[in-house]
C-alpha cells in the first residue's frame, strides 16, 4: 500500500545541511502494525510526516495506493490527507476552544459532510472510544488519556486507510497510555494500517513489525521482504 523508494530529505539549519532522511526504502502492506523506533534526530518523525503528506521528500518516489504523491498539488494532497490518513500526535493538538465532539467533527466539516450525518458519526465515534459522556467537555476539562482518545476519534472519523501516530503515549501516564494503545490496536485489528513512532521499547515490541532508524537510514526492519 505504501511504497517508499530512495526517499531523501535535507533540512537547512543555518549553513549546515542536515540529512534527516537519506535513501530510505520501505514498503507497507495494508493492515500492518509497524513501530518506528530510534534515537532522537534519527529521522523517525520526518519519515512519518512524509508518509502523512505533511512534508515532501527532496528526492525519491512515494506511492500511496499506487498513486504517485510527489507531484500532487496542495489541494490534492490535502484531499488525500482528509480521506486516507489519520494523525495522532504526542501533544494531542485538540482545538482548545472547541468541545470534544466539535474537535472530532472538524474533519467532517472540512470534507463538507451534512450536519445531520456529522452528528451521528461523531456520536458513534465517541461512544466507540468510551467518551460519550464527555462530548460536551472542552479539552482542558479532560484528562490526558481522554484527550488522546478524542484525538483518535478525530483521526478515525473519516475511516482512513492509515493511522499515523507520533509518540501517542509520550505525554501520558502508564495506565492511560495503555488504554490509548489498546484503542489504536483495536483499530488495527479492524483492518486499519497502524504506523507509530515511539521511544518506548515495550510499546515497540507489541508491534508486529519493528523498524529501527539511525542517522536518517533504516538500520533494522523486522518485516523487510
Amino acid at each position: 500500500m505504501i511504497h517508499l523508494v530512495g526517499i531523501k530529505r535535507v533540512f537547512q539549519v543555518g549553513d549546515e545541511a542536515v540529512h534527516a532522511l537519506s535513501n530510505v526504502n520501505m514498503t507497507v502492506d495494508a493492515g500492518e502494525y509497524i513501530a518506528i523506533m530510534g534515537p532522537s534526530g534519527s529521522g523517525k518523525s520526518t519519515l512519518l510526516n512524509i508518509i502523512g503528506l505533511l512534508d515532501r521528500p527532496d528526492k525519491g518516489v512515494y506511492r500511496l495506493e499506487d498513486m504517485d504523491t510527489t507531484d500532487l498539488t496542495d489541494d490534492q494532497q490535502a484531499s488525500v490527507r482528509r480521506h486516507k490518513i489519520g494523525f495522532v500526535f504526542q501533544f494531542f493538538h485538540l482545538v482548545p476552544r472547541l468541545t470534544a465532539a466539535e474537535n472530532v467533527e472538524l474533519p467532517l466539516i472540512l470534507a463538507g459532510v451534512e450536519p445531520a450525518e456529522r452528528r451521528s458519526r461523531v456520536q458513534a465515534a465517541l461512544s466507540a472510544l468510551g467518551l460519550s459522556g464527555r462530548a460536551k467537555h472542552r479539552p482542558d476539562q479532560l484528562s490526558g488519556g481522554q484527550r488522546q482518545r478524542v484525538a483518535i476519534a478525530r483521526a478515525t472519523i473519516m475511516q482512513p486507510r492509515v493511522i499515523l501516530a507520533d509518540e501517542p503515549t509520550g505525554n501520558l501516564d502508564r495506565t492511560s497510555g495503555k488504554n490509548v494503545v489498546q484503542s489504536l490496536e483495536d483499530l488495527n485489528r479492524k483492518g486499519m494500517t497502524l504506523i507509530l513512532v515511539t521511544h518506548d521499547p515495550d510499546l515497540g515490541s507489541r508491534a508486529s513489525r519493528k523498524v529501527v532508524m539511525m542517522d536518517g537510514r533504516i538500520s533494522e526492519d523486522t518485516g523487510a521482504s
Binding site: A78, R81, H83, L106, L110, R154
Partner: peptide
C-alpha cells in the same frame, strides 16, 4: 500555529 497545522493535517488545503 498548531491549530493551523492541525487543520492542514486533517485535510484543509492552504486555500481553505
Amino acid at each position: 500555529t498548531t491549530e493551523i497545522g492541525l487543520l492542514k493535517a486533517i485535510g484543509a488545503p492552504g486555500r481553505q
